[in-house]
Design a protein around this nucleic acid. Sequence first.
DNA 1: CTGAAAGCGCTTACAG
DNA 2: CTGAAAGCGCTTACAG
Lengths: 335, 335
Amino acid sequence: MASYPTSRPTIYDVAAEAGVSKSLVSLVLNDSDMVSAPKRDAVLAAIERLGYRPSRAATALAAARTRTMGVLIDDYRNPWFVDLLSGIREVVEPAGYLLTVAERRTSSADEALEGFLGSRVDALVVAGELASNHADLGIPTVVVGGRDHDVSGADHIASDEAAGVRLVLGHLSELGHLRIGHVTGRGGSARRRLAAYVDGMADLGDSPRIAGGDQETNEEGGYAGTIQLLDAYPEVTAVFAANDTMALGARAALKEAGRRVPDHASLVGYDDSLLARARFLDLTTVDSRNDEVGLATGRALLRRLAEPSIAPLSVVIAPRLVVRSSTARISAQLA
Amino acid sequence: MASYPTSRPTIYDVAAEAGVSKSLVSLVLNDSDMVSAPKRDAVLAAIERLGYRPSRAATALAAARTRTMGVLIDDYRNPWFVDLLSGIREVVEPAGYLLTVAERRTSSADEALEGFLGSRVDALVVAGELASNHADLGIPTVVVGGRDHDVSGADHIASDEAAGVRLVLGHLSELGHLRIGHVTGRGGSARRRLAAYVDGMADLGDSPRIAGGDQETNEEGGYAGTIQLLDAYPEVTAVFAANDTMALGARAALKEAGRRVPDHASLVGYDDSLLARARFLDLTTVDSRNDEVGLATGRALLRRLAEPSIAPLSVVIAPRLVVRSSTARISAQLA
DNA sequence: CTGAAAGCGCTTACAG
DNA sequence: CTGAAAGCGCTTACAG
């Protein structure tokens, strides 16, 4: 039986209700300090009584800015973006900006970007992979993470994945592991971690042992990749997976192969996800500090909004090793 | 060195470029069938050349609708919303609607709803818990899931959680389990599953064994709740957790207690998340069929947009039991 | 199809 | 502070 009102109150209704001019209402809405307290209170009370909400469309059209920033993520099911989002929000919300999120999985990156540009967002965050290079989008843009593809003129903020991998290899070698296998997968992040693994193994003076390059970077891929790894390199005493979800799959493969973690094999993931924290896995992993990445992203956005023409910025955030019970000193029988 | 153009092309520029009137451009943008093919092509070519994107703000303001629907979810980290979103999108996107998502975790439900109303979304989906009852919001609204709190005039779409719990108890009792413990937690979903569990145990002729009512419905809560459960009811032969994430915690608690799954205890979750599907857990669970819930939600939205004044609709979707290796026939020693 | 017009709900700048 | 005005980029309806 509900019927939907076709006309919500406008700024005119508020002005009439408060007994002031339309201009004054606008000043109050924009937090101007040229409004006396009594007038301001009268307007606010009228707004409250009428249940007035400014039309974002009208505001955006008149002010020629939306006070909204678009964030393009990979996939809602890959929750690394959550901390990133919190970090960005923490910086830009106090400055009066709203965040809107789009997912590349359900609409191509191009469609999503087009959507943001059509919405006239004031700035853009591209988090994750891009299918191609893009010309300057005409608004402040921050690329977070990968640099396989780029947006020209954009600022770049990334967690230092090479440093993260070095932390992993350093930790494992301190525990006596040298025959460290790596389960990788498709995608830029896995590729960067793989490259750092190869470099790191050279530094350790051992040869790389790699499997899973054709796999997706999910549980299934981690399982299949680890099967391949153990098949090709049965001598490995430690498995480093490209991310925590793959490590979850690796754990199942190790179990099937009769190798208990950590006694018969150490296992390391990457991302410090909720998964890694779960007691049943209790996975040694790397925290990319995505909240810090988010804070830096937010600051870069505000900075470029204030000064559009400064040279592109590049920030790298140091990751942190999180040691849990999935890694242990190599046992006498394996060494 | 990037500089951001202050003026993007407008409909006037397109009209000039194509050598047609502004009205014609508008007709083309709105897919009118009163436009000849050559004129349409000329306009589309001009749009392409200029890189024109209609301003959503101007369109929304002039047309008095945004072609956007708001979806309010609980928490990005709880991925049950992903399938729901896909289902909704599948129905409403062909009808020309865009979805925008807001999360209650980072802004209260009220703030998020206010935000949607300020954005003048054409319709609203409230997925999950609401802190209080709401008056008619003035736009078509669908409440998905819980009915603890309501929006008056809203349609309701929900997975039949009571039926899901009956599937679980039926499955376990068929396997010979009667002393079935339940690990619950805070929140409406856990409460509904708990109530159904209590009813179901009465039907089975056994008394309920419950723990964890004060816990959060996460891995940590599942762990702590299961410790409590095993402490209070060491005789349980099966543990039913309020969701998969709690089941993950339960698995760790069972392991610590020296009870192997499924030989010394069967374990069941709820949600059929990626977690349940992972080989290392391989968890028997309930698929709420959130994609179906999403499809029904999308259809309800379009229906009410077409006919605002029909009586509220209530749809219940039948869930499905997913049997994996975490449940097994009760062993002779336990029976 | 064109062209002129009004209007959506705001912001902005300005004279008073 | 008020009031009148112009404008943001579209849609809509209408006369021709």
